[in-house]
């Protein structure tokens, strides 16, 4: 996807379309909030990534609702959802699918794996061996599966929501930088507020609220919305702003590794989706500022000094954002 936008021909229609984007997004949000309460920021990033055709990494301690969140999204959008529980003995074929020999027909037939779905929930991805992890990550980047020399396209929308436990917990293989880079954004769900936790006891006490969740939209509609998001305008000054922001992570003395050019593309795409979610047909600095931490932080490696000062990548990104002048007239 290029940074260029072709907005001129359908500006008028686009604004109405974007009203539809935010309306649909609001419906999805409301639906999910019946399951997970009090996490509007998390939901916003989730929807942003969905509309920007990215993949989401949810990182948190066990039991805070990572899986529930992904499942709720799958239920709210009427599309195929597959769940893969990553374990150390999981093989690449268990994800992509394998060719099975049919003796009667005397030929191989491809049996699609769980990755053939609109939303793939990769649970505890850092428990699998790196080999298996990379099989999934290849599907994420290429949006296709190659088995035995044959290529199988994945249906759109295709979104991987992977959860992982923090890498310092037992039995985990932390994702290498190159693979973290393929996720558009990383979020932490975090513990619910005391009130939300009280409500949760009530709602989850009787039966799973997921069962009450009925779909509010479908895959075709999401494809349509994604197409509209692509036409959101990014002003030249805003492009420079994004580039400067990413550049700043590369030259920051606090960081051992800065963000990649892919991060630049992801940040622009996410900012477009974020603008559309708010009913705007152009990107403003606030979009970029809101998304800078979720989109950039997981790709960065703090340097030794920063680690001694117990600075996290999130704090460093936030600091850079607060120091960078927004584009404007002189």
């Amino acid at each position: 996807m290029s940074l260029d936008t072709r907005h001129d021909e359908h500006e008028g229609g686009l604004r109405e379309d974007l009203g539809a984007v935010s309306a649909v997004a609001d419906r999805i949000r409301e639906a999910i909030e019946t399951v997970i309460e009090g996490k509007p920021d998390v939901l916003r990033v989730l929807l942003t990534v969905l509309l920007a055709e990215g993949h989401l990494l949810i990182e948190d301690v066990p039991g805070v609702g990572k899986t529930m969140l992904a499942k709720a999204l799958g239920r709210a959008v009427d599309c195929s959802v597959q769940r893969v529980q990553f374990t150390p003995d999981l093989l690449p074929g268990d994800i992509t699918g394998v060719s099975v020999y049919h003796q009667d027909r005397n030929e191989f037939e491809f049996a699609p794996g769980p990755v053939f779905a609109n939303i793939v929930l990769g649970d505890e991805i850092n428990r699998a061996s790196p080999k298996t992890q990379s099989a999934l990550l290849e599907c994420m980047a290429e949006r296709q599966v190659s088995v035995d020399g044959r290529t199988h396209e994945l249906e759109r929308p295709f979104m991987v929501v992977a959860t992982q436990n923090p890498s310092d917990m037992e039995g985990t293989y932390s994702l290498p930088e190159a693979q973290r880079d393929r996720f558009m954004a990383r979020i932490s769900v975090g513990y619910p507020s005391p009130q939300a936790e009280l409500d949760m006891i009530d709602s989850h006490g009787s039966r799973s609220p997921l069962e009450n969740l009925s779909p509010v939209t479908d895959a075709a509609r999401i494809r349509d919305l994604v197409e509209r998001v692509r036409h959101v305008h990014v002003a030249p000054g805003m492009r420079r702003y994004v580039v400067d922001l990413v550049n700043a992570t590369r030259t920051s003395p606090e960081l051992r590794l800065g963000a990649s050019p892919r991060a630049t593309l992801h940040l622009v795409r996410a900012a477009r989706a974020h603008a559309a979610l708010n009913g705007r047909h152009y990107v403003v600095p606030d979009d970029v500022q809101t998304l800078a931490v979720p989109v950039l932080a997981h790709r960065l490696l703090p340097g030794p000094e920063a680690r001694m000062e117990r600075l996290t990548a999130e704090q460093i990104v936030a600091e850079i954002v607060s120091r960078l002048a927004v584009p404007g007239p002189r």
Partner: peptide, 10 residues
């Protein structure tokens, strides 16, 4: 953007 150098972060 980038018109002014930023002080050392934090």
């Amino acid at each position: 953007p980038g018109d002014e150098p930023a002080p050392a972060p934090l």
